[in-house]
Nucleic acid binder design. Sequence first.
DNA 1: TTGACGTATTCTGATATGGGCATATGATCT
DNA 2: AGATCATATGCCCATATCAGAATACGTCAA
Lengths: 118, 118
Amino acid sequence: MARAATTTDAFNAIAEPRRRQLLDVLAGGERSVGELVSELGLAQPQVSKHLRVLREVGAVDVREDGRQRLYRLNGRALKPIHDWVSEYEHTWDDRFAAVDVVLEELQQQEEQDGGRSR
Amino acid sequence: MARAATTTDAFNAIAEPRRRQLLDVLAGGERSVGELVSELGLAQPQVSKHLRVLREVGAVDVREDGRQRLYRLNGRALKPIHDWVSEYEHTWDDRFAAVDVVLEELQQQEEQDGGRSR
DNA sequence: TTGACGTATTCTGATATGGGCATATGATCT
DNA sequence: AGATCATATGCCCATATCAGAATACGTCAA
């Protein structure tokens, strides 16, 4: 087997830097493909292809307007990523350091307690 | 060109579900490769290989102990991901909805203002 | 209708991926 | 030293990736 399809989930979709850039631009509001092309300095077909991936994982929505397609961010698709990575926030954020210390102490007490009481 | 090497950055590293699983287990504390193998139900070589990727992006640290290697989570490597995705939190979190409304109103006023005053 | 424009799709090619299997390496025990 | 355990590496394969170029498609204007 090879790598999972990028179209599989948001985690794969945002692994590509250009796609993150696209989302970053779209965070500023709706854009046509042409605008994205010039803002990113990428070739039009690549932009369309990256947009397709983002569309398939639900990170963007499209709207037709004459011969243009207007893309709009749909951040909800990124929530699973945020949820997952937030679990690790305490590992680097000092604000949680103190809490962690307390938790560790509790854990150690628990172990010392063994099966004694309870 | 193909996709950027998975070993390049944390975004790529966590695009692989097994690697996320590895991190999730390691979040529970230090583990030997063998323990990870049985907890994930993966073949030992694949586990070692995934661990290598995680090591290269700095998401885990290793410690030698006799013939075992004890792996430990290093969440700091995930911070860039958290930072990036947090920018999008307001797009799905209701708590920010009200703020967004205000910002949009301000923006519209700005536009109506045109180049008038200022 | 014809042609220009805006965007999507297709094809190709170089490269990377992840799994499976065999094997190398290194530490421990007898 | 030899055997065994724990882990890492190497090789192969099927498949997926991304970029680039060509082209197809749909819409609008003349």
